[in-house]
Design a protein around this nucleic acid. Structure first.
Lengths: 188, 188, 188, 188
DNA sequence: CTATAAACGAGACGGTACGTCGGGTCTTCTG
DNA sequence: CAGAAGACCCGACGTACCGTCTCGTTTATAG
């Protein structure tokens, strides 16, 4: 189905090299210093090759961080809601502990603010699958008609608190607080 | 006590005018367009007057948003933990609904990332008072020895979910989800 | 011979456009108002394109005025020293009457002061050809062994007095004084 | 006659200190680096004290260099025009050999260009006395009706060539050329 | 086996924000 | 009131980054 376009095909290695370079630079020097030129240099690539693939720096970094993260989420097969919450917290807390994710957050937030339709797309791709799963589980556990809303709210709590605990706390206290989070979240 | 410095004293009105101008611009045109020149023009002030007071754009905006927000929070006198959580959610959800706060978040996160000691200072000034209050209330309600940790975790859940619900959801769904949040957070 | 450099070549039209814009602005609004931004705007060019070519405003203006002026002087074929002096005065008085040359003089003097090797290069390129010609003519007219020095001194007198008459006098008086200058300069 | 003004009288020492500081800075660091703040610091004086006395940096430096130079010129009592020219050259060549005078020239030229009435005032104060003297001497030596114009032209030649020989030549060649100048200038 | 079309590295381009600095004016307090 | 200190406005300077555009070269498919 993918029609064979004429001309030289794109080098698929460039995509990976650029995304990896972006992640490394984010972790090492932060958002500000992660320049398009710097990404291109580290990837051994020219700037136009980047702009042929992503329309802006924001989108490149977005994909670098989040396509990396939306890989095997696999919280799917939790037996009950408690277990589901536990596993989701574990995954999300790990995610926001990654230095490149933390470094990418400023740019991500700016993009969310300027580009509202990114909100829904992010929410849909990242949150929706797990939310549906949790909603069904809750209904099986006797939740009322608003099980879907509760599932969304639960996801909001998990994501938000994971972010905040990584941004504002550190050291042993962060670990201790993080360990208490799942017990407090109780949608039933 | 404050020694009399020689020379013309700084005009204190400039501080307020600049901070107000920064807040207005953040709400109106967003982080990118909130230029130092634009702040100076709206405040009726020269650029050097801004750089005499704040070493960079980030620091100016940080103070503009957060010195404004660390006002009297006054959730203090809640009769029980349920009520405390309800009121805290109301306050925090309102806070992150403000457009200038949303617009300032990218800069805030960048500052948190580059300047780790800002973490503790922000957590202490913004979260600590309410957390202590909640901790005592919980202990009075029969919580165990880890009431203090649970209070911190509860605050993390409130702040984080308020931020996420404002950033990722919108419209009626946001309101509905926000309304379910307090019921799910249950530290006892 | 000129090695092929990689990358997009510099647009040669920008050089000319910038130098022309600089000359026009000098003539119209003077040295102070001849801003780099103004030059860029008039040339239809960005500021970085200027700084890629010249390291500072002074150097740009220097080249704008003096590469323009070191064109074919062609006073060469004067039959005797009197005629040579007459023609040189005519040329030099015209030169310093040009508004962009007058406007550029401050920058030129500053450059001469800060960058001494510019002295000799300017003297060599601008003065030397005519001086040699005059020296030979003088020797043919019976001048002594110091004809070369006298030729240099004559050139100094012509350049200097042309500059001063344009800077310090004006109106009819300037014209009358300028007309008497060649008669007074008499190297024989 | 000089009315007694009320209030504290101006400290006369400040004038000299400021002018001396300006001359020193011009000679040491050039026109660009000779800042009003720098002059004030070296003179042990505040900036407003400078602006109380001179309306601009240009005028301050102008006075610093030229009131210093318009001291006893004393070419007056030359017996004939040849001697007058000789002495004037000696004086003017010395003047333009001074480093602070050379450093001040850029600013002076800029001021002449922007402020045309400065031309006549400078010409009148600095050139006129000697020119009148030379004009009378020439008339006594049998010059025609245009002795006044020739006197002006002679002065233009002396000033201009002295400036150029100092700006464009250096070392032994400068001295040799300068020595030949008076012989070539011959108004009769 | 050549022609074409597109991708590639390098880097110039317009635009614009940043942070610094100098000139000239003003406002405080001290003598 | 003069004077020192220094804040103030204005605006130019030079740097950096973004996203686009031309170069000349390379490479895969089409004919």
């Amino acid at each position: 189905m993918t029609e064979k376009l004429p001309g030289r095909p794109r080098d698929p290695g460039i995509d990976d090299a650029a995304l990896a370079a972006a992640r490394e630079l984010l972790a090492e020097v932060g958002w500000e210093q992660t320049t398009m030129v710097a990404i291109a240099e580290r990837a051994g690539v020219g700037k136009p090759a980047l702009y042929r693939r992503w329309p802006s720096k924001t989108q490149l970094i977005f994909e670098a961080v989040f396509n990396w993260m939306t890989e095997p989420v696999a919280v799917a097969d939790a037996p009950d809601s408690t277990e589901w919450i536990q596993r989701s917290f574990a995954y999300t807390l790990d995610l926001f502990a990654r230095p490149e994710v933390q470094a990418a957050l400023p740019g991500l937030l700016a993009a969310l603010h300027d580009n509202p339709d990114l909100q829904s797309s992010l929410w849909r791709e990242f949150g929706a699958p797990g939310i549906d799963m949790l909603g069904e589980t809750l209904q099986g556990e006797g939740a009322g008609s608003e099980a879907a809303l509760d599932a969304q709210a639960t996801m909001v709590l998990i994501i938000g608190s994971s972010m905040i605990v990584r941004l504002l706390l550190s050291g042993e206290n962060a670990a201790a607080v993080a360990a208490r989070l799942p017990r407090i979240v109780n949608p039933l």
